[in-house]
Design a protein around this nucleic acid. Structure first.
Length: 958
RNA sequence: GCGGGAGUUGCCAAGCCUGGUCAAAGGCGCAGGGCUUAGGACCCUGUCUUUUAGGAGUUCGUGGGUUCAAAUCCCACCUCCCGCACCA
């Protein structure tokens, strides 16, 4: 059967839309508010995006069927810089980008022409993404749609920031960033050529005084100031004399540039060549000693200040350079004294002698200062000393401290005395901006931060994280870790789309900061879209009233020109729908958005509006590979819908992995799924809701299994283990169905349509959240009333489970399996099959043993002793092996299984096994005979009957 | 460096939280059969070793341990993957 998926989906989509099935307003039912991170419209959405949204939609649809008034809205995040960058590239006629628009994104030519305007890009992809969401069948209430540059949204974000500022959570400070001097803008990884992360390291500048000058050196190891024996300078480099904040520094010209961006007032007043400084003596700060400035070729003008402080005891470079110099002392007649310079050891580390640098240089067989292995040696020694070293007593008050701690303390100490400063150095240089300019580290003044370091705020967030529902559970700990290492976060930047900082209009609120409490705005958006409120009238007091219940409604309604009843309605609606019951997002947002989301809700809203649950999902792989533009394996969602149909895609991305795992999307699987759905749809047209017939054993069994299926599936759904739930409904139950049909067919029954109708109706209902379109089609195929999407989720009724029939069918299945196994192993073609059930005393004994084992008694001897006390079963003396085997039988089955056996009376095996006849007849075409072990006139030529045990009949095949 | 996660039978991948139904789901691949002019699709059967009586043996990264019982719990080790900020 071929299904026209496109028109099938269109048909039901129309119906949902016309009947406004997914628009929700406050009513008397319990509400469920589910949200997903809104998309950033700078490209069409692909299958990877589809996963999070589909997950949320399944959640929404499930909760709707569970009887909740579900609100599932969607917005669009225009805030940010990437779209701005794209627009600029279009202006510059960037071939590559335009080609991407054309061929990959299939943007019409007339739209591309407009893309030099950022908003046009956002608008275009906004509509594209929205269309995809509708086609995917997401049950979204579109009346609440908005973008983050809507004027009322701006007012809302202003309100958010004023609130944060009132609570002193927005602070101002100075902050180093990677910076492009040409663009006058911070650079991040995707702003650089080759996507290099512009990371940098903080160095301590130590000021050595020479005459009226300062020779600054940059170091990562300020604690080694106690071991300085000399400075190194490159004799061939021309240094700059620079006035820096009323001091005269001598630094390389590269260093002078760096200092400028670190907000130093710089004036270049002269030049001096390195060799003119060789042999001069400088004062070591805090030590009241003088050391020589010596020449070294390893000193590079682009690193640090271009001058290096020398600690030969602990720095392999310094040690080697000093050795080299001593060897060539004849070249420096004025420096004869240097042969007396001895390394000053200040750190002791296990495994190293008095002069660790000497040890390691020998070990590495360095030879001279240009040996590239010096880097390696430096790294090793640094790390050994950092973690294992202790300062010696020649370091004064820092003695006995471990290096890792002393380092910071020494730095603070020298900084406090004015003999030190801070320098930032890019780790990998040069880093080039996309524009081609060399990046630097800039100290940004008066930057605005959200103070995620605030201990009280952190504490509050921790304790809420430990209370809220987080799925999957493994991720909870990760949230706590994020909270721990989160620091101040810059929350405003100077370019991009977004909302201006209300008290400082030079700044635009950054995109990860204007997207943390917007779920509340979905309530407002409905009234903005219906034009009941406009941006002109909205003020802070409006939000205070709606969200916090603060203020005088009459005053506010006149101030904001909102009818009092509308104001009241909005507030009531907010109070009805808030808090967010479930927030969905990909796991990449855990260390940022999701954590900020919690932080900000806790700061702004009262406890009753804090988010209740977060659901995190993994990403999607394409045919086992990571999706990426360069691999060319990004499939736009709408393309995929056209080829596979929405339902198949939904199922494919949900069934291939559990929540946090990466799901794999592959053509093969999608085809298989579509086939399965088509077969099932076909099946659904066959069964009619016939009135009840005389229920037979297998009917009762199938109905019981259905109850168990419903219970299991519901349990999985509630934990958002969707893969597991699907597995139950789609695949696991198939085995039961096959068995049922086998039984029914063997008995040549024709009256089971009604039973299967009942079964399929329940299954279709449970499939409906996952594959909403085809479920509607199946639902109507089954001639059920109404919509599958709006039907109630099946409820498992324990009393409907007939454990007797479950045990009976199990026995049948196991016996049939055993017969098949015997036939397989013996390779005989059976002519006669005889089955023997256990003798009554064994049945009684089994029952005894079962209840004893369930009570914890597993000792065979003790069991036998208590059993022979019973006259009915004293025969057990003759067959002690029976006890052992029975105990093993019981122990090797599940607790659940044993409990269910313990719960019901033992089944009448003889009666149950008489049902074998039809099965054996249809499978092997021969009859089956059933005896009891205790029958006097039984046919038992091979004396098999005596091996029979309850649930394990003896079998003879001839 | 800090933090998180994973290693399962030819491959992908469940199971692990809550130990026993686990020789271990499902899919792919492979083998046989059905359907078909043939192929594809689809359906059935099989797919660790061994076994002419429903059994036995050896497996879940490696090595220990706890337990009547370990893929599952504990400890150590090895290997691999991901995130680390002004970026959505």
């Amino acid at each position: 059967m071929t299904v026209d998926w496109t028109s099938l989906e269109e048909k039901w989509r129309q119906r949902w839309c016309v009947e406004k099935q997914f628009e929700s307003d406050p009513d008397t039912k319990k509400k469920f508010f589910v949200t997903v991170a809104y998309p950033y419209p700078n490209s069409p959405q692909h299958i990877g995006h589809g996963r999070t949204y589909t997950l949320a939609d399944v959640h929404a649809r499930f909760m709707r069927m569970m009887g909740y008034n579900v609100l599932f809205p969607m917005g669009f995040h225009y805030t940010g810089t990437p779209i701005l960058g794209m627009a600029r590239r279009v202006q510059e006629n960037d071939k590559e980008l335009i080609e991407t628009f054309r061929t990959l994104y299939k943007v019409p030519e007339e739209n591309i022409r407009e893309f030099s305007e950022p908003i046009k890009i956002a608008d275009y992809f906004h509509q594209e993404i929205k269309a995809g969401m509708i086609e995917m069948g997401y049950s979204i209430d579109w009346r609440r749609e908005f973008t983050t540059i809507d004027p009322v949204y701006n007012k809302f974000i202003e309100w958010q920031f004023r609130k944060l500022k009132e609570k002193n959570l927005v602070i101002q400070g100075t902050h180093p960033v990677g910076w492009c001097p040409r663009d006058q803008n911070p650079v991040s990884q995707h702003d650089t050529l080759g996507d290099v992360e512009p990371s940098f390291t903080e160095y301590t500048i130590i000021k050595f005084r020479y005459d009226r000058y300062i020779l600054p050196t940059a170091t990562l190891r300020p604690e080694t100031i106690f071991g300085v024996t000399n400075l190194w300078i490159n004799p061939n480099v021309i240094y700059e004399i620079v006035e820096v904040d009323n001091e005269s520094w001598i630094v390389s010209s590269e260093c002078a540039t760096k200092l400028e961006f670190l907000n130093k007032k710089i004036a270049k007043t002269g030049k001096i060549i390195g060799k003119d400084l060789v042999g001069k003596k400088v004062k070591v700060p805090e030590r009241n000693e003088e050391v020589f400035v010596l020449p070294a070729t390893f000193v590079k003008s682009e690193n640090g200040t271009g001058i290096v402080m020398s600690v030969p005891a602990h720095a392999p470079f310094d040690y080697q350079a000093l050795e080299d110099l001593k060897k060539n002392v004849s070249q420096y007649p004025d420096l004869a004294l240097i042969v007396d310079i001895k390394p000053i050891s200040i750190i002791e580390t296990e495994g190293y002698g008095e002069v660790p640098a000497q040890d390691i240089v020998k070990n590495f067989q360095i030879g001279d200062q240009n040996n590239p292995r010096l880097d390696e040696a430096t790294k090793e020694l640094y790390s050994r000393e950092f973690y294992g070293g202790k300062l010696k007593k020649n370091t004064g008050k820092f003695a006995k401290k471990v290096v890792s701690e002393a380092k910071e303390e020494v730095k603070k100490w020298i900084l406090a005395s004015g003999n030190a400063d801070i320098l930032y150095e890019l780790n990998e240089s040069p880093v080039r901006c996309r524009c081609g300019a060399k990046c630097v580290v800039k100290l940004l003044d008066n930057q605005w931060f959200l103070n995620y370091s605030d201990p009280e705020w952190k504490q509050k967030t921790h304790s809420w994280i430990n209370e809220m529902r987080i799925l999957p559970e493994e991720i909870r700990n990760e949230f706590n870790n994020v909270v721990d290492w989160l620091r101040e976060r810059a929350c405003a930047r100077q370019h991009g789309l977004g909302t201006k900082l209300p008290w400082d209009k030079n700044w635009i609120i950054e995109s990860l900061s204007d997207s943390v409490i917007y779920m509340a705005y979905y309530i407002i958006a409905k009234y903005v879209n219906s034009k009941e409120i406009t941006s002109d009238n909205i003020s802070n007091t409006f939000f205070d009233y709606v969200f916090l219940g603060e203020g005088e409604p009459r005053k506010i309604s006149s101030e904001c020109k909102i009818k009092p009843e509308v104001l009241e309605k909005i507030k009531d609606e907010f109070q009805y729908f808030y808090p967010v019951n479930a927030r969905h997002s990909g796991r990449d947002l855990v260390p940022n958005h999701l954590t900020f989301f919690i932080f900000n809700h806790l700061a702004i809203f009262p406890r009753k509006y804090w988010p209740e649950e977060i659901v995190v999902n993994g990403s999607v792989m394409m045919e086992g590979k990571k999706m990426s533009k360069s691999m060319g394996n990004i499939i736009p969602l709408r393309d995929a819908i056209r080829t596979h149909g929405a339902d198949s895609i939904r199922l494919a991305i949900l069934i291939s992995a559990e929540l946090l795992q990466d799901a794999d999307f592959n053509q093969e699987a999608v085809r298989g799924i579509r086939n399965k759905l088509e077969n099932m749809l076909d099946e659904c047209t066959k069964y009619k809701p016939l009135k009840n017939i005389d229920l037979q054993q297998e009917d009762r069994w199938l109905q019981s299994r259905l109850q168990q299926l419903i219970a299991k599936t519901t349990f999985s759904m509630q934990k958002m283990r969707l893969r597991e739930a699907l597995h139950h409904v789609l695949y696991e139950f198939e085995t039961d169905l096959q068995w049922y049909l086998k039984r029914a067919m063997a008995k040549k029954r024709t009256d089971f349509s009604g039973i299967l109708h009942e079964i399929f109706s329940a299954r279709v209902a449970m499939m409906s959240p996952f594959v909403p379109y085809v479920s509607e089609e199946m639902w109507s195929g089954l001639a059920n009333p109404g919509l599958a999407s709006k039907t109630v989720w099946p409820i498992a009724i324990e009393s409907k489970i007939d454990f007797q029939s479950i045990q009976s069918e199990n026995l049948l299945k196991l016996t049939l399996d055993d017969i098949k196994k015997i036939i397989k192993v013996t390779r005989i073609s059976p002519k006669k099959i005889i089955v023997y059930t256990a003798t009554p005393w064994k049945v009684k004994a089994y029952h005894e043993i079962l209840s004893k084992v369930m009570a914890g008694e597993v000792n065979i001897g003790a069991l036998i002793k208590s059993l022979i006390a019973d006259k009915d079963i004293e025969e057990i003396k003759k067959d002690p092996d029976f006890v052992k085997k029975t105990v093993n039988d019981i122990l090797s089955e599940s607790q659940e299984e044993s409990e269910s056996k313990n719960k019901v009376e033992l089944i009448d095996e003889r009666k149950v096994l008489s049902e074998l006849d039809s099965l054996i007849q249809s499978e092997f075409g021969i009859p089956v005979q059933v005896f009891s072990e205790s029958d006097q006139d039984k046919y038992d030529p091979k004396n098999k009957a005596r091996t029979a045990r309850p649930y394990k009949p003896a079998i003879l095949i001839e």
